[in-house]
Amino acid sequence: MKLILTHEVTGLGEPGDIIEVKDGYGRNYLIPRGFAIRWTKGGEKEVASIRRARKVREIKNLDQANEVKAQLTGLKVKLATRAGESGRLFGSVTVADVASAIKAAGGPDLDKRRVELGAPIKTLGTHRVTVRLHPEVSAALDLDVVSA
């Protein structure tokens, strides 16, 4: 199945890329979640608009990615959330929560799709979070989850 990516998908490509995947993966995962649309000849026009939008948002080059990484390296990120007496959270911390906490701590405004948690965060304490800034550059920072 031939698809056009509308969002970045790890291991497949960037928005605007035309990819070939198995029918079930495209039909049951990528298209329903809005990560891709079916490829058509008319879809080629949409590829151009997706790529233009991506150029506005993306980190332009390796130097800019390293600058953002330097900003994130020394950043102390604290996220206050509701938790029980045992230190277990009511729910879990999402990538959107982490992205907004980074911005609130004085860091850059990041797209939530660039944040990788590894495992779901469901307890209080310090957790390691990775931010993919560029295909060659990623920054790791500590997220301090505290009770609100």
Rank of each mutant, 00 (worst) to 15 (best):
R88I: 14
S100K: 14
V95D: 08
G42V: 00
H134W: 04
K60E: 12
T81L: 10
T40Y: 01
A104W: 02
G16K: 10
V145R: 03
L133N: 02
D97K: 08
Q71F: 09
A99I: 06
Q71L: 15
L117N: 11
K103M: 04
T130C: 09
R114N: 03
R52Q: 06
R54F: 03
G91Q: 13
I4Y: 01
A139G: 05
S147P: 02
K122W: 07
T126W: 04
K122Y: 08
I31N: 07
G74A: 14
D17I: 03
T10G: 01
V146H: 05
V21I: 12
N66K: 15
V21A: 09
D109Y: 01
K69D: 11
D23A: 14
G16L: 07
K55R: 08
I4V: 12
P32G: 00
V146T: 11
R128Y: 06
A101D: 03
T81F: 08
L3H: 05
P135Q: 04
L72A: 14
E8V: 05
A119D: 07
K78M: 09
L62G: 01
D142N: 12
G34P: 09
V98T: 07
V9W: 01
E85K: 15
F35I: 01
G106Q: 07
I37M: 13
Q71T: 14
T40C: 01
M1I: 04
E136Y: 01
T130N: 12
P32H: 03
E136Q: 13
Y25A: 07
S138T: 06
I102Y: 01
T73N: 15
Q71M: 15
S49F: 00
E67V: 13
I50Y: 00
E14Q: 14
L110S: 09
T130F: 09
E58F: 00
D109N: 14
T81W: 07
L5P: 06
G13D: 09
P15D: 02
G16E: 05
A53E: 10
I19N: 04
K45H: 04
G84H: 15
G106N: 09
V131M: 11
G107T: 08
F90K: 10
S92I: 12
A139T: 03
D144C: 05
F35R: 07
R51M: 01
P32R: 01
A139L: 02
A96N: 12
L12Y: 06
E46T: 10
A48P: 00
D144P: 02
G11I: 04
R113S: 12
E136K: 11
E44G: 01
P120N: 00
F90C: 06
G11K: 06
D63V: 08
I18N: 06
K103N: 06
T94R: 11
L3A: 02
T81A: 14
V98E: 02
T126E: 13
K76M: 10
V146M: 04
P135C: 00
